[in-house]
Design a protein around this nucleic acid. Structure first.
Lengths: 186, 186
DNA sequence: CCAGCCATGTAACCGGTTACATGATTGT
DNA sequence: ACAATCATGTAACCGGTTACATGGCTGG
């Protein structure tokens, strides 16, 4: 149930509308978790029913009406509880799912050009993602300095560092894989 | 739809029962994709309805009756088609989902000991997974030599190499993160 | 005697995806 | 003129998880 807890974490920084939350989620957590706008609204509803949030409808004339969500004490408790789940649950949280690697596993069924194309496309995507993370990194450093909370900033940095390490490793692998296939003529 | 295609790929090596497929899936593809036994049976049903498979019930007296699945030409076509999807879909296949990283992102809300415990537990799990992949690697090398298909064996190796690179990078990151937090006293 | 393997599934539920609907304001 | 931004959702569907049901044979 990570989407709910991701949203709780963001709302813990301050009250927001569903629209703003959706954008905040996509701007910060989308590297580790993806959610469609329609799902965000549905989850907010469910969270309010559980008493983790309250919402207030605000009428506007110039713009569409909006609904501002605020985390409750019960929601803060739930967040704290989720953040301190024991180590046992970490194995679950670590799990990798990659359709790409299933394709690699079965790529022996395709021809040489096809498998090399696939790997080259993967390498290019990794390069692209790596570049956009570099931008995110500098943006986060500046933001961290503004906010002034060194502890929070340190963890934001760490999560970005993870992403960089991940893409660097993926890139190295892709380049090595391409070289191996080219050299062996497979 | 990776589970369906993973199962197709395995059935393409030879006909099997649902039970055997489930075990084969868990033995080979479970690093990149996880599926419960009950889901495997459900997917096999759906795949048969689509005409990708046929099944034959085999009565046994000493053991429970079984049902052997065989890939059809239409299923082989579908597999080939999936394996040659264009680069556009690779971005989708690359996507990372990690509840653990959401926890890291919000770990600034918890205390020092809690966040260090979390990172140490993560590091330990990585070490464990890394060790079991080393075993899988040697097993795959031996199996590859027996099968004799160098091309297939090369891709099995590559997918395991990916896993090793992934866990090595995760481990390095975790150790670095622990050092940073300890040094800065955060 | 009990654990574990063999072998099949069903039912309910939850979470994620796709497609659709509305409609005013602001900037190029 | 056209796209983007603001702002809300609904409905149907698909994929993954949890819990449950059955039952004989084999090895420690």
């Amino acid at each position: 149930m990570s989407l709910k807890h991701g949203l709780l974490g963001l709302l813990n920084y301050g009250s927001m509308t569903g629209y703003e939350l959706d954008k905040a989620f996509k701007a910060s957590l989308s590297f580790f978790w993806q959610a469609k706008t329609s799902q965000v609204y549905r989850e907010l509803d469910a969270m309010e029913r559980r008493g983790w949030l309250t919402s207030e409808r605000i009428m506007q004339t110039e713009k569409p009406n909006k609904r501002v969500y605020t985390i409750t004490d019960s929601g803060k408790e739930e967040l704290a509880c989720w953040l301190s789940l024991p180590e046992a649950d970490i194995a679950d949280a670590m799990r990798v799912k990659s359709a790409f690697l299933i394709r690699v596993f079965f790529a022996g069924e395709t021809n040489i050009e096809q498998s090399l194309d696939m790997l080259r496309a993967y390498r290019d995507k990794c390069l692209e993602s790596r570049k956009s993370l570099r931008a995110a990194h500098t943006a986060s450093e500046e933001y961290g300095a503004v906010v002034g909370d060194k502890r929070k900033a340190a963890f934001w940095e760490l999560s970005i560092l993870y992403g960089e390490a991940f893409y660097d490793a993926s890139l190295d692998w892709a380049e090595k894989a391409i070289t191996i296939l080219e050299d062996r003529g497979l």
